[in-house]
Design a binder for these strands. Structure first.
Length: 435
DNA sequence: TCTGGGGTCCTAGGACCC
DNA sequence: TCTGGGGTCCTAGGACCC
């Protein structure tokens, strides 16, 4: 038995936790670069569609009818950690599936009233983190996801649905669009529709051999899961990463190679930090640049990659590799919107395969340097110490005009409570700060 | 006017092995 | 004239997820 715990409107909920004045108000969170809406509070769902551009909702913001936030990934990641740690009180098996979702293994829990258990989970996560969640319970992960989907949309269920308590599951499945199934995206949905398969129930009863032949093993497994046969087991230990990407759109279009190089050096710095956090080294490194998709008269994209002499997570080495790749990909006369760096062929830093014929490189000194830089940047502020290649005055800087505070991870940004202010600020929602 | 970022998995086909 | 069987590895592309 599985439970899927899904945070409601996660990014918007994170922002609301620290702004009790926004309770009941429509709130949206924008993508990086303040591009488009990626999260909406329940109130905002009535006002704006997902992926609406900032421009298209600007009039609501100006009239004070909608509160908008730039993406604050540090805050969301820390809130996610709090939710997961809370869930670990409810099952020994917790698999974080995404930033706002986790599966709980409920093996051995089936004698319990799982609806009541789900309510307990929901209430505890709400109290300890301030984040509202929905819970779906079922014998397979795919069905648990659907149960949570139904729970979220049906107010009578109060956010919890245990499929085991539903007398006619098929009737529920018949009312859900096939595109809502975990693993059925837009493309598969269209192809299934063309064959007359429109609801989850129709997919559940479709011919499995034909589906396997036509769409492959994943769709077949999904169908078996709809029939109650578990094909996707719990994976409580995260698989090691196979790639690390840092990719950003620019706040302003970039035409000069020198600016592009500074952006790539900055992204490479971030990427190297991630690798060091993961304890990984990369053997392959790639740089990709492109113009905007939405400018037909200005289309260009290119990528270049290199196999490094030895696997590394050293910022300087990676920047040194990235600069010629950027120059090689660059073509003058275009307005660039975005750059991306990709580290692949990752291995644990402490298990690097030696080179038979190369002189062994002693990286100990470099490792100490990187550790010192990371420590300083954590202690002081991001990029307190940085490499010259990233430049001093970035012309490409992302837009981020509606940034909130990193309330839970930075001492100078913790929530402040003023004496005499609304007592709601002192409610249990004002969380103790980490550390 | 502006339209994100970061990942994983599967399949088909070609090259190559004994 | 006709010429096997069984397999691995790699890559590109397409699909999916949040």
């Amino acid at each position: 038995m599985f439970a899927l715990v899904d945070c409601n409107s996660f990014f918007a909920s994170c922002e609301k936790v620290f702004r009790p004045d926004l309770e009941g108000q429509p709130v949206v969170v924008l993508s990086n670069n303040d591009g488009c809406v990626v999260a909406r509070s329940p109130e905002a769902k009535k006002l704006v569609p997902m992926q609406a551009t900032l421009f298209s909702i600007q009039h609501l913001v100006k009239r004070g009818e909608l509160c908008v936030f730039s993406a604050n990934p540090v805050l969301y990641k820390d809130m996610s950690r709090r939710v997961i740690e809370t869930l670990q009180h409810f099952s020994p098996e917790v698999e974080q599936y995404s930033i706002d979702e986790a599966f709980l293994g409920l093996h051995g829990f089936t004698h319990r009233d799982l609806t009541a258990y789900g309510q307990q989970i929901k209430a505890t996560v709400q109290q300890w983190t301030g984040i509202p969640v929905s819970v779906g319970v079922a014998p397979t992960k795919t069905l648990a996801k659907l149960a949570a989907h139904v729970a979220k949309r049906n107010p009578d269920l109060k956010g919890i649905l245990d499929f085991n308590t539903v007398a006619d599951v098929d009737a529920v499945l018949a009312a859900i669009d096939v595109g809502q199934v975990w693993g059925i995206g837009g493309n598969l949905r269209a192809k299934l529709n063309a064959q007359g398969i429109r609801t989850v129930l129709q997919l559940k009863h479709a011919d499995e051999q034909r589906l396997k032949k036509q769409f492959g093993i994943l769709v077949l497994r999904t169908v078996m899961e709809l029939r109650g046969v578990a094909c996707f087991p719990m994976e409580p230990v995260a698989a090691p990463k196979t790639m690390r990407i840092v990719s950003r759109s620019f706040g302003h279009l970039v035409t000069e190679l020198s600016d592009l190089k500074e952006a790539v050096a900055t992204f490479t710095t971030r990427c190297a930090e991630k690798l060091r956090d993961d304890g990984l080294v990369a053997h392959q490194f790639a740089v990709a640049i492109r113009t905007s998709y939405y400018r037909p008269d200005n289309q260009y994209a290119a990528a270049r990659s290199v196999t490094l002499a030895a696997p590394t997570n050293d910022t300087a080495t990676l920047i040194h590799a990235a600069m010629p790749l950027t120059a090689a990909a660059f073509k003058p006369g275009y307005e660039y919107l975005k750059a991306k760096v990709i580290a692949t062929e990752l291995t644990p830093a402490d298990a690097v395969q030696g080179e038979l014929f190369a002189t062994p490189v002693n990286t100990e000194k470099r490792d100490r340097l990187m550790t010192a830089i990371d420590t300083l940047n954590r202690k002081l502020k991001p990029d307190a110490v940085k490499f010259g290649a990233v430049g001093l005055n970035p012309t490409w800087q992302m837009r981020s005009d509606y940034f909130s505070q990193r309330y839970t991870t930075h001492w100078d940004e913790i929530p402040k409570v003023k004496v005499g202010q609304s007592s709601r600020l002192a409610s249990p929602r004002s969380l103790p700060v980490n550390n």
